[in-house]
Amino acid sequence: MENITNNATEILLLFFLLITFLQSGIDKLVDWKGNLSWLTGHFAESPLKNMVPMLLGIVVVTEMIAGILSAVGLFQIVTAGESQLAFYSAIVSCVALLMLLFGQRMAKDYEGAKTIAVYFIPAIFLVFLLQAY
């Protein structure tokens, strides 16, 4: 119980990343064709238009790694008070969000890019919190 109370902020942020990235990654896997179709249209006028399937695959893998690391890092903090995997999950989460931000900017979807910034704030804050350990 002490690990939970001493690391409540980190635990809550890990739950946030876990939900965000596992849901997103699973959604992209379950509805690959729908996501690929939408993204192909979204990037039709961008320099990324010919790379959409490959980039979608990279994003899915990165999101799944971020979500799984968040789950394992959460377990590690709660059970052992260790935060190394949680730190890695925060880093991978930030990388995933930066990839998404880059894509939105390339597609000139500035409203979508703003939305990603909202997710980046808690992820980078978790990196900050876990750097001290």
Rank of each mutant, 00 (worst) to 15 (best):
D27V: 09
G81N: 06
L129G: 04
T79E: 15
I68M: 12
A71G: 12
L14W: 05
V72P: 01
M54W: 07
G25W: 05
M1W: 11
M51S: 14
Y88A: 15
F120Y: 07
D31Q: 07
Q23L: 12
I11C: 10
N35L: 11
M51C: 13
I68N: 08
L97E: 03
G73I: 05
A8N: 04
A90M: 04
V59C: 10
P122H: 10
L17P: 04
L22H: 11
S93Q: 03
I4N: 08
T40E: 11
T115Y: 09
V60K: 08
L29G: 07
F120C: 08
P53E: 09
M106A: 15
F102N: 11
Q104Y: 04
Y88G: 01
V118S: 13
G57T: 02
L39G: 07
V30D: 13
I26H: 02
L36N: 09
Y110N: 12
I124P: 02
M99E: 13
S70M: 05
A107R: 03
F120E: 13
D109Y: 04
D27K: 04
L12K: 02
L18E: 02
H42T: 09
M1H: 10
A86Q: 07
Q76N: 01
L29I: 03
N50W: 04
L29M: 11
Q84L: 15
I11Y: 06
A66S: 09
Q23V: 08
I91W: 04
F16E: 12
V30I: 10
I19P: 00
A80G: 12
Y133E: 15
G67M: 05
F75L: 14
L36P: 08
L13Y: 02
E63D: 13
Q23I: 03
M51G: 14
G34M: 01
S24Q: 01
V59G: 05
M64Y: 06
R105T: 14
A132T: 00
L22M: 11
Y119D: 13
L22A: 14
A80F: 09
L100I: 13
G73A: 13
M54Y: 14
S70G: 11
L100P: 05
A123E: 05
K108W: 10
L48P: 02
A107H: 06
G81A: 09
I65D: 08
P53W: 00
W38F: 15
P122F: 03
N6D: 13
V52T: 08
L129H: 02
L97S: 08
F43M: 11
A90G: 00
D109L: 04
K28D: 15
E10C: 00
N50Q: 12
P53D: 11
F87H: 06
S83N: 13
Q76T: 07
G67P: 01
L69M: 10
H42K: 11
